[in-house]
Amino acid sequence: MSTPTLYLPRDSRLHHLHPLTKLALIGLAIVAGATLPVTLWVIAVYLLILMPLAAWGKVLPAFLRSSLLLIWPFALSLTLIQGFFAPGEHILLQLGPLSLKLEGIQLAADYTARILVWLSAVILLMLITRPDQLMLALTERGLPRQIGYIILTALQIIPRFQQRAETILDSQRARGLETEGNLVKRLRALVPLVAPLILSSILELDERAIALEARGFTRAGPRTSLTTLKDTAPQSAFRWLSLIVMLLLILARAAGWMTA
């Protein structure tokens, strides 16, 4: 059985960093992906920062697999939409009334690069950080436990969904549902697959809430933690520095200091 999160336990220096330090690294990549004015710089964030980080954390294969698997639908749809519908002069291909334009392709490449950086930054965070430790670090800094819990659940929910979806797929196929074949057949197969997924998840939510209540989640007052997180002064300094860099990037972008 697979673990319910993307987290891969590895013995790397990256893994041993304080969760907030990892969060700062990832935040830096995300802000850079949003603010850098040149597409190539954004791609450089992926190639020269995120990929080496993943390699340092000994999770490079999983990192590449997940990020490339997630990005291609974006790449495809953005290329089609922007390529054909963004305004531009340089026509590459004429298809009846539609024309594929260079400017659109460039725009699509830019968006795709930024989305790639955002998605893969989050994936990297999930690969190298135990969700419970991240939540602990955040609640230690004053994040309400409820919000920490929501983040934790959100991180866990996709693989859990996947497992359940597989069981549902099996049980409907066992009742004669044909899932292979043409598009119409596949679309028709969607309702019996999606409906139980949503309904049973809602049911589970209800039980989860009761279980949380039963274990004192909403109790008032101070509490202790089973695990303690190790933090160091250089890491703290690094986090402040990242925060400053992030603010500078945003400021520079907003003030128009950085231009392509």
């Binding site: 359940r164 069981t167 549902i168 099996d170 049980s171 409907q172 196929r173 066992a174 009742r175 004669g176 549902l177 044909e178 899932t179 292979e180 309702v191 019996p192 697959l193 999606v194 409906a195 139980p196 309904l199 049973s200 049911l203």
Partner: peptide
């Protein structure tokens, strides 16, 4: 054979009904 074809011969009741009711 596909599962859908074999479903004519073998019926399989899964443990958790909530993972099939829609």
């Amino acid at each position: 054979k596909t599962v859908a074809q074999l479903a004519h011969i073998v019926g399989y009741v899964f443990q958790n009904p909530d993972e099939q009711l829609f």
